[in-house]
């Protein structure tokens, strides 16, 4: 067991633990903060798996931008911790069945997985410059589409953010 695999298991344990904690918190601020830890851990994992650029982007975008956005919204809404007291029994049963189905699907996938998946993977690193070059040579159209998507999201958010103001002055309606 090399030092890399020790790191991997440490990081994996950290990720699963913090994610589980995040999912179960009543207080949403705590949940978001635990999730930040989880995302930082997955950034470390990306470094370990040879994707330094993705690791940095994970820190910047996921742990930085997205989670801070969540935090803003949580702070802004200041919702009372009065989450509904749970569901009907059939809902829990359904969730259990779903999980079982998921595990079954995963197990089937493992059974069907190709050769060599059990052997330890060789370490390799994609240098950020190589990765960027590859991205813009092979996926320039995808990059353009994603940037367009971000623009559309921006415009949509602006629209969503603006519309209540207009409605407040008007007579108001459901939408």
């Amino acid at each position: 067991m090399s030092v890399y695999s020790i790191f991997f298991y440490l990081i994996a344990a950290l990720m699963i633990l913090s994610t589980a904690l995040a999912v179960t918190r009543k207080n949403m601020v705590h949940a978001v903060l635990f999730l930040v830890i989880s995302f930082l851990a997955s950034a470390l994992l990306f470094f370990l798996l040879g994707a330094p650029l993705l690791g940095i982007l994970e820190v910047v975008i996921y742990a930085g931008a997205i989670m801070v956005l969540f935090l803003f919204v949580v702070m802004m809404i200041r919702i009372r911790a009065t989450e509904g007291s749970g569901f009907l029994l059939w809902h829990y049963l359904g969730a259990g069945g779903l999980s079982a189905l998921y595990v079954a699907a995963c197990l089937l996938l493992v059974r069907h997985s190709g050769p060599g998946t059990g052997a330890p993977m060789p370490a390799a690193v994609a240098a950020p410059a190589d990765f960027g070059l590859y991205l813009f040579e092979r996926h320039w159209l995808g990059i353009e589409i994603v940037s367009l998507l971000l623009l559309v999201a921006l415009i949509g958010v602006l629209h969503l953010g603006l519309s209540p103001a207009g409605q407040r002055s008007g007579k108001g309606g459901p939408y």
Binding site: F46, A51, L57, H139
Partner: peptide
């Protein structure tokens, strides 16, 4: 890694 990058970008748009 390229696919992961696109996931990142889509996630950002989706969250916003």
């Amino acid at each position: 890694q390229a696919a992961a990058l696109f996931i990142l970008a889509v996630a950002a748009a989706e969250v916003a």
